[in-house]
């Protein structure tokens, strides 16, 4: 069974299988296993994804090669890559791309930073961590639609809680319209998005922290290594891979984020919070230009893929891939 040890999917140290030497059913079983079994195991998942992701994605690619406006659904001329060319050339697209990258960068940085701090806290012996551990789960429990509405109530320019708080602390003289300033509007959305997603990051990072072998720390404790050094030398290198996983997952999430933009700013003021996902939504469902909208969603997919590959390359370079 040399094959078993060759691929990256093989378990580390997977030795020759003694059971395989035994007769009858196991032999047949093992032959079948090596040939078809893995595919049979994947079949249900693959079927589901083919029907519900691959087929729609294929169809939407087909649509993206056509001029298709749902106001004129009977006219469906093939225009090749024109939608893509038009998309890439339009100022709206470039503005949205820049907003998307800014939003994604800020959101991912905040989520990972905060998630890491929280995970370190929850993994320490600090008093009250049990309470904090429960609190971390609160934002996770909020459905996105409630999250969006919630932050709208908080940042409302006339009755919002945030304004009330600042006013009572004497930090502002009168209620401000926070979402009117393009920079602040984006930051508010980042804060709201991060709030909803920090728990997931915290859970993954906390899980990774808990898997660090204790003896690594015990040695450091005996040596009286400074805390910062322990963090830098032992904890962070161990966390490198889980952090990367969180970064990839959160990047995917941020590039697809939509609800908050829909509820909080509607892409404004001006086009200062118009992301690619929002542009896709508007193009497909407000302007009913399904061809162009499909092209936009392909651009988002491509972008996500590209970023995932960049991260992955970074990972390979460090030689940390299992």
């Amino acid at each position: 069974m040399a094959l078993l040890q060759a691929g990256p999917a093989a378990a580390p140290g997977g030795a020759a299988d003694p059971a395989l030497a035994r007769g009858g059913g196991w032999r047949r079983w093992s032959r079948w296993k090596s040939a078809l079994f893995p595919y049979a195991l994947n079949a249900p998942a693959v079927l589901a994804l083919l029907a519900l992701v691959a087929y729609p994605v294929g169809l939407s690619f087909w649509i993206s090669l056509h001029k298709m406006n749902l106001r004129r659904p009977k006219s469906f001329p093939f225009i090749g890559l024109d939608n893509y060319a038009n998309a890439l050339a339009s100022p709206e697209f470039r503005a949205a791309l820049s907003v998307t990258l800014k939003f994604t960068g800020l959101a991912v940085a905040l989520i990972v930073g905060l998630g890491l701090c929280l995970a370190l806290l929850l993994n320490s012996e600090v008093k009250g961590r049990g309470i904090l551990r429960a609190l971390v789960l609160v934002p996770w429990a909020i459905p996105p639609i409630v999250n969006a509405t919630l932050w709208q109530l908080i940042f409302d320019s006339h009755v919002g809680a945030f304004n009330g708080l600042l006013l009572q602390f004497g930090l502002i003289e009168s209620y401000k319209a926070w979402l009117v300033d393009p920079a602040i509007a984006l930051v508010v959305i980042v804060l709201a998005h991060a709030w909803n997603h920090v728990p997931m990051a915290t859970i993954i990072l906390l899980a990774a922290l808990q898997a660090i072998p204790r003896d690594l720390y015990e040695a450091a404790l005996i040596d009286r290594t400074p805390r910062a050094r322990v963090l830098w030398r032992i904890t962070l290198p161990w966390l490198w891979r889980p952090i990367l996983v969180v970064v990839i997952l959160q990047t995917m999430g941020a590039l697809r984020a939509f609800d908050l933009f829909y509820v909080l700013t509607g892409g404004g003021p001006g086009n200062s919070t118009t992301t690619l996902a929002w542009l896709t939504y508007q193009t497909s469902f407000v302007y009913l230009d399904l061809g162009m909208g499909s092209a936009y969603s392909y651009v988002i997919m491509g972008l996500t893929l590209f970023m995932a590959l960049v991260y992955y390359r970074g990972l390979y370079k460090r030689g940390d891939v299992a």
């Binding site: 994804l49 992701v53 691959a54 729609p56 994605v57 169809l59 939407s60 995917m252 590039l255 697809r256 939509f258 996902a277 896709t280 939504y281 497909s284 909208g293 499909s294 936009y296 969603s297 392909y298 988002i300 997919m301 996500t304 893929l305 995932a308």
Partner: peptide, 9 residues
Amino acid sequence: SRMVPAIGI
């Protein structure tokens, strides 16, 4: 397949 924006499909 996780990278597909739901809006697009």
